[in-house]
C-alpha cells in the first residue's frame, strides 16, 4: 500500500519534470527559430513557397467551412431571434460571433489540422530520412533553411485565413437569412455595422488570429523537429501537433478574450 502511494507520487513527479523539461526545450527551440529567421527574410522566396503549402492549400477548407458556419449561425440565430421579434439583428449575431470568436478560433483549429499536421509530418520525415542531418553536414543550418520559413509562412497565413473565414461566414449568413428566408437586406448590414466596432471587434479578432498563428506553427515545427526518427515517432508527433495546438488555441482564446474584452460590455 505504502509502496503504491510512493510510486504514485513518483510518477506524478516524473511527469511534471518531464513536461517542464519539454517546455524548456520548446522555448529554447522557439528562440533559436527567431534568432535564425534572418535567412527567411533575406530570401523571401523560401517563405513564399511555404505560403503556398500552408496558405493556398488551406484556402478551400477555410472558405467552405466559413460559408457553412455562417449559414448555420444565420439559420439558428434567425430561429431564436424571431421569437423575440428581432430577426433583423441576425446580421449582428452572425458578424459578432464570427469576428470575435469563431473566425479566429475555428480557422486556427482547421489550420492546425490541415497545415500544422502537414508541417510536422514533413519536418519529421525529413529528420527520419536523415535529410536534416545531411543538410547540416552540407553546412546549411536546417533551422534557418527548413524550420524558420515554415514558421513565418504560418504566422503570415493565419490572420489572412481567419479574415477570409469571417467574411465567408458573414456572406453565408447573408445567403441564408436575406436570400432564402427574406430578412431585410438593409437591416442585415446596417444592424451589423452599428454593432461591430473596428477597434474592439475586428482588430482584436485580428490580433487573436496572429497569436494563434504563432502558437500553431511553433508547436508544429517543434513537434516535427523533435519527432523520434521512426514511422511511429512521426505519426505520434503529428497527432500531438493537432491535439496540443487545439488545446493551446482554446486556452489562449480564453486568456486573450479576458484581456481584450475586460470591462467592456
Amino acid at each position: 500500500m505504502f509502496n503504491r502511494i510512493v510510486s504514485g507520487i513518483r510518477s506524478i513527479g516524473h511527469r511534471v519534470i518531464e513536461s517542464i523539461w519539454r517546455l524548456g526545450l520548446a522555448s529554447r527551440f522557439f528562440m533559436l527559430v527567431l534568432l535564425k529567421s534572418g535567412t527567411s527574410f533575406r530570401r523571401f522566396g523560401l517563405v513564399i513557397r511555404e505560403l503556398y503549402y500552408s496558405g493556398v492549400l488551406s484556402l478551400i477548407i477555410i472558405v467552405v467551412s466559413g460559408l457553412f458556419v455562417g449559414m448555420v449561425l444565420g439559420l439558428q440565430g434567425y430561429e431564436t431571434l424571431q421569437k423575440y421579434g428581432s430577426e433583423s439583428a441576425v446580421g449582428t449575431l452572425v458578424a459578432l460571433s464570427l469576428v470575435r470568436e469563431l473566425g479566429p478560433v475555428v480557422a486556427a483549429l482547421l489550420f492546425a489540422s490541415r497545415a500544422g499536421s502537414a508541417i510536422t509530418a514533413e519536418i519529421g520525415l525529413m529528420k527520419a530520412t536523415e535529410q536534416l542531418e545531411a543538410m547540416a553536414l552540407m553546412a546549411v543550418d536546417p533551422i534557418a533553411r527548413i524550420v524558420a520559413p515554415r514558421f513565418w509562412a504560418g504566422v503570415i497565413s493565419m490572420p489572412l485565413l481567419a479574415a477570409i473565414f469571417s467574411v465567408m461566414g458573414i456572406y453565408g449568413g447573408h445567403l441564408v437569412t436575406v436570400i432564402f428566408i427574406g430578412v431585410d437586406e438593409g437591416s442585415y448590414w446596417s444592424q451589423m455595422q452599428s454593432a461591430v466596432d473596428f477597434r474592439f471587434d475586428i482588430l482584436n479578432g485580428f490580433i487573436k488570429s496572429c497569436f494563434f498563428g504563432v502558437a500553431v506553427t511553433a508547436i508544429a515545427v517543434f513537434e516535427g523537429y523533435n519527432a523520434p526518427p521512426t514511422a511511429e515517432g512521426v505519426s505520434g508527433a503529428t497527432t500531438r501537433t493537432v491535439v496540443t495546438s487545439s488545446l493551446v488555441i482554446l486556452g489562449l482564446d480564453f486568456v486573450l478574450t479576458a484581456f481584450m474584452f475586460r470591462g467592456v460590455s
Binding site: 520525415l125 536523415e130 535529410q131 542531418e133 545531411a134 547540416a136 553536414l137
Partner: peptide, 16 residues
C-alpha cells in the same frame, strides 16, 4: 564541413 561530403545510407535526398 564545406570541404566534406557525406553519403547517407539511403541517400537522404531532399524529397521536395
Amino acid at each position: 564541413r564545406r570541404k566534406m561530403g557525406m553519403l547517407f545510407q539511403f541517400g537522404a535526398l531532399f524529397t521536395d
